[in-house]
């Protein structure tokens, strides 16, 4: 296991290096540098070029990359072109907001697991039809639209939930925060919920037909024990595969929900940085995401071992 982890660490280091160099290059190859997004006609071409020079964009690209790397190894992701603040600071100030929302969404999404079990146990009966129909319909609806409709219905007409933001300005308390959290968390949970429900349903159907389940039943075990101790554990393996990417998604946030729910998170930061060509911020976020993806995949591999004792990491 230890030698496996060391090998993975070395691989990851080179992977990170390669990916960052590629992203850095591709980013610079897209037409129009950040100066193209200074759309104020009062700025002359000369002004824009001066700003580009101050941002270090007139240097050869490999030099810019080496500078970036030399800062990164010292833990410095550079400064935003937009407001000159450290990229790390910009990421860290939004990270808690995103984590808070995505953790709630993930938690709600896990409810898909019992839902899948429920559908599988009642195969071709009402609960199964209900779960299958709902997951297909909700899956077909774009998230942002679902979010917007829920928001308008429950917040604007029924006035049950607030229309925007993480909390009421001036009344920032725990109940108030939870009240603001419900809608975005529910919308954020739908993808996971649907995926888990469907995966678990089909996996359960397969496992329930296995010999060992029949054996368990014939031993006279309670149905509950058979379902959750014997069948479900084996059906969870595909879910474990999905855990790594899910963790990355937790941090990445989503510009879609964050826009609709006026949520000041990482997704909007990434979107704005990409749209305005704020290279240091985009690069910083990309770098952090890459590390998380690599970590996430590692966690997935380790999770396999836990879920399935037959798997060994070599």
């Amino acid at each position: 296991m230890t030698s496996y982890l060391v090998r993975r660490a070395i691989q990851s280091f080179f992977l990170l290096w390669l990916v960052s160099a590629l992203f850095f290059t591709f980013q610079r190859l897209t037409p129009g540098g950040p100066q193209a997004y200074l759309v104020d006609p009062r700025l002359s071409e000369g002004d824009k070029e001066r700003l580009a020079e101050d941002w270090g964009l007139h240097e050869p690209i490999h030099l810019q990359y080496f500078k970036w790397v030399s800062h990164v190894v010292r833990g410095d992701l550079g400064r935003s072109f937009q407001d000159r603040r450290p990229v790390t600071e910009k990421i860290l100030e939004r990270l808690p907001n995103t984590l808070y929302l995505s953790a709630a969404s993930l938690f709600l999404g896990l409810l898909g697991i019992p839902l899948g079990v429920w559908a599988a146990v009642n195969r071709n009966r009402f609960p199964d039809h209900l779960v299958r129909l709902t997951t297909v319909v909700v899956n077909a609806v774009p998230d942002w639209w679902l979010g917007l409709m829920l928001l308008i219905l429950t917040a604007s007409y029924l006035k049950i939930f607030p229309l925007s933001g993480m909390y009421t300005i001036g009344q920032d308390s725990l109940p108030d925060r939870l009240w603001h959290l419900i809608l975005p968390a529910v919308v954020g949970a739908t993808n996971g919920l649907i995926a888990y429900a469907r995966i678990i349903r089909s996996e359960m159907l397969e496992t329930l037909g296995q010999d060992y389940v029949r054996t368990a039943r014939s031993k006279g075990l309670r149905e509950r024990t058979v379902l959750y101790r014997h069948a479900l554990r084996n059906s969870l393996i595909p879910v474990a595969t999905g855990i790594g990417p899910t963790i990355t998604g937790l941090v990445g946030g989503s510009v879609v929900y964050e826009r609709v729910f006026s949520w000041p998170g990482i997704g909007r930061l990434m979107y704005d940085a990409a749209i305005q060509r704020d290279y240091p911020v985009a690069m910083g976020l990309f770098f952090v995401f890459t590390i998380l993806v690599i970590l996430g995949l590692l966690i997935s591999d380790v999770a396999y071992v836990v879920a399935d004792p037959r798997v060994r990491l070599e």
Partner: peptide
């Protein structure tokens, strides 16, 4: 003056209508 930053225009309009 209390500015709220609301990126989505539909939401913004609903907030105006509800008096928020």
């Amino acid at each position: 003056i209390q500015y709220r930053i609301v990126p989505d225009q539909n939401v913004s309009f609903h907030m105006l209508k509800t008096g928020e």
